[in-house]
Amino acid sequence: MKRVHVAAAVIRGADRQILLARRAAEQHQGGLWEFPGGKVEAGEVVRDALARELAEELGIEVRQARPLIQVHHDYPDKQVLLDVWEVSAFGGEPHGAEGQPLAWVSPQQLDDYPFPAANQPIVTAAQLPERYLITPQGLEPGELLRGVRQALAEGVRLVQLRAPNMFDAQYRDLAVDIQGLCAGKAQLMLKGPLEWLGDFPAAGWHLTAAQLRQYAAKGRPFPASRWLAASCHGAEELALAAQMGVDFVTLSPLQPTQTHPDAAPLGWDKAAELLRGSNIPAYLLGGVGPEHLEQAWQAGAQGVAGIRAFWPQT
Results as ranks from 00 to 15, higher is better:
220 R>M: 07
113 Y>K: 01
12 R>L: 03
238 L>V: 05
213 R>T: 12
120 Q>K: 11
22 R>L: 02
235 A>T: 07
305 A>Y: 12
125 A>T: 11
104 W>N: 03
257 T>M: 12
299 A>P: 03
89 A>K: 03
307 I>S: 09
180 G>S: 06
40 V>N: 02
24 A>G: 06
204 G>S: 07
34 E>I: 12
137 Q>R: 10
87 V>M: 08
70 Q>F: 07
179 Q>T: 12
106 S>H: 04
273 E>N: 10
264 A>V: 15
113 Y>P: 08
233 H>V: 13
74 D>L: 08
171 Y>H: 10
289 G>M: 08
58 L>D: 10
125 A>P: 01
259 T>N: 11
63 R>K: 11
229 A>Y: 02
199 D>K: 13
100 Q>S: 04
48 D>L: 08
82 L>E: 12
157 R>V: 08
194 L>F: 13
88 S>R: 05
148 V>I: 15
239 A>K: 05
257 T>G: 12
68 L>Q: 05
159 V>P: 10
89 A>N: 09
218 K>V: 11
41 E>D: 04
295 Q>E: 14
174 L>W: 08
211 Q>Y: 00
269 D>I: 14
13 G>E: 00
279 N>W: 09
101 P>D: 01
187 Q>E: 13
49 A>I: 02
288 V>W: 14
69 I>V: 15
105 V>R: 03
203 A>N: 02
18 I>M: 01
149 R>M: 11
132 Y>D: 03
81 L>T: 15
212 L>H: 06
312 P>K: 12
26 E>L: 08
303 G>Q: 08
300 G>I: 04
241 A>W: 10
193 P>Y: 02
129 P>L: 07
273 E>C: 11
142 G>P: 04
213 R>L: 07
216 A>F: 00
13 G>H: 00
297 W>G: 01
9 A>G: 06
100 Q>H: 10
15 D>N: 06
25 A>L: 09
247 D>E: 02
118 A>C: 10
272 A>N: 10
184 G>S: 03
299 A>D: 04
187 Q>C: 07
9 A>L: 07
265 P>K: 08
260 H>K: 06
28 H>C: 02
261 P>Q: 11
307 I>C: 05
70 Q>M: 08
115 F>V: 05
263 A>I: 00
56 E>P: 01
220 R>P: 05
60 I>W: 00
87 V>K: 02
22 R>Y: 08
15 D>V: 00
128 L>Y: 05
209 A>K: 15
145 L>H: 13
286 G>V: 00
120 Q>Y: 13
213 R>N: 09
168 D>Q: 13
68 L>T: 02
228 L>T: 03
155 G>I: 05
92 G>P: 05
308 R>D: 14
154 E>I: 03
230 A>K: 02
284 L>P: 11
97 A>P: 01
260 H>D: 07
292 H>F: 14
46 V>W: 12
80 V>D: 04
106 S>T: 12
149 R>A: 15
291 E>Y: 10
281 P>D: 10
107 P>Q: 00
88 S>K: 02
146 R>A: 15
151 A>R: 10
49 A>N: 00
31 G>I: 01
290 P>L: 14
57 E>C: 03
150 Q>W: 12
